[in-house]
Design a protein around this nucleic acid. Structure first.
Lengths: 177, 177
DNA sequence: ATCTCGAACTTGTCAATGACAAGATCAACG
DNA sequence: CGTTGATCTTGTCATTGACAAGTTCGAGAT
C-alpha cells in the first residue's frame, strides 16, 4: 500500500457522507471513517483540522453540487423545485450537513462562496412573479426545502407516488394555478 | 439536598433542551446535563435508558406541545402556519429532535401517539381547499416546515421583519391570493 | 413500630472517541 | 546528495456513553 494515498481528502469526504446517510450526523465517528478508508485516525485531522472542519468541507462540496443541479434545471420554478428536492434526497448526507450552522465553520471563505453561488441560482427564479419577489422567493425556497426535509425525515406517506411526482405536485400548488 | 429529586425526569429534559438550543444536538453530553441538574451521570440512564431514550422523550414532549399550539390557533391556514413556525422557533431544541428519525426510538408508543395527535390537527386545515386535499395539506406542511427550518438554520435574511410577519406573508402566498 | 420491597439514585468501570503532540515517510528540487 | 515541506503515523489524554453493582429512601403490609 502506498504511503501517499492520492485522494485521501475526497475519499474521507465520500466515506463520511455515506456514513452520515446511514447512521445520521451525530453518530459519525472520525476514527471509523479513517478505518474504512484505511488510514490512521489522525490522517483526517491533517486535512480538516477537527470535526467541524470535516463538516465544513462536506457542506461546501454540497452547496457546489446543489448549484450545479439547479443551474442544469432551467425550465421554470417547478422544474427547479424538483431538482432541489431530487438533490436533497439523492445527496441526503451532504444536504443534512449544509443547513446545520452549528456543525460548520460559518466564516469559512470556501463555504461562503459556495453558498452564495447556490443562493444566486435559487433567487433568480422568483423575480418574474407578481407581488413581492422577496416573499415569493422565500415561499418557493421554503416549500421545496420543507418537502425535502420532511421526506428525508420519513414522515411523508408516499402512497406509491415517487418523490419526484409528489414534489412536482406540491410545487405546482404554490404558483401554477 | 433530598436524595429523591422529585422532578428529575422533567428537569433533565429541560436542561437537555436548553443545551441543544445552545450547542446543537450532537454536542449534547448526557454527563454534562446530569452535572447541571446536580445528579450523578447514571441518573439519566435510569429514566431514559440510553441517549436515544432521552431524545425520544424530548420528541414526544415536543409533539404534544406542538399539538397544543396548533389546536389553540384556530383561524384558518395562515394562523395555524404562523403557530407552527412560532413553535418551531420558540421551542427550537425540541423541534430539532422531533424530525430526526435516527435520534429517536421510532416504535415508542408514546411518541407515536403524540405524533398522531399533532398530525391530526395538521391535516384538518387542508381538507376545505379545492383540489387534491392530500397534496394541499402536504404543500401547507412543507411551506411552514421549510420556513421554520431555514429560519432556525439562520439562512433567511430578515431585513428587520420579525419571523411572525415573514412567516405570515410566506404562508399567504400559498392559498390566500 | 418495624419489616420488606421496589423505585430512585450513586459509585465504579470499560471501550471508544476527538483532540493534540511528536515522530516517520516521501517527493520534489537545488 | 541533502534539505525542505507536505502527508501520514504512533502515542497519549480527558471525556464520553453504556453497563454493573451497590445504596438510600419511602410506602404499604404486618
Amino acid at each position: 500500500m502506498a504511503y501517499h494515498h492520492g485522494h485521501l481528502r475526497e475519499s474521507l469526504i465520500d466515506v463520511a457522507v455515506e456514513a452520515i446517510e446511514h447512521d445520521g450526523v451525530d453518530r459519525l465517528s472520525l476514527r471509523d471513517v479513517a478505518r474504512t478508508v484505511g488510514v490512521s485516525h489522525a490522517a483526517s485531522a491533517y486535512h480538516f483540522g477537527d470535526r467541524k472542519g470535516l463538516f465544513t468541507a462536506i457542506a461546501t462540496d454540497g452547496f457546489q453540487r446543489l448549484a450545479v443541479a439547479l443551474e442544469a434545471a432551467d425550465g421554470g420554478f417547478v422544474d427547479a423545485g424538483v431538482a432541489y428536492v431530487r438533490f436533497a434526497i439523492a445527496d441526503r448526507g451532504r444536504f443534512e450537513v449544509m443547513f446545520r450552522p452549528e456543525l460548520v465553520n460559518g466564516d469559512d471563505p470556501a463555504l461562503l462562496a459556495a453558498m452564495a453561488r447556490a443562493s444566486a441560482v435559487l433567487g433568480a427564479g422568483a423575480a418574474e412573479r407578481s407581488g413581492d419577489s422577496r416573499v415569493n422567493g422565500l415561499a418557493a425556497w421554503s416549500i421545496v426545502h420543507g418537502f425535502s426535509t420532511l421526506w428525508n425525515a420519513g414522515v411523508i406517506r408516499a402512497d406509491g407516488a415517487t418523490a419526484d411526482e409528489l414534489a412536482s405536485s406540491v410545487a405546482a400548488v404554490l404558483f401554477e394555478r
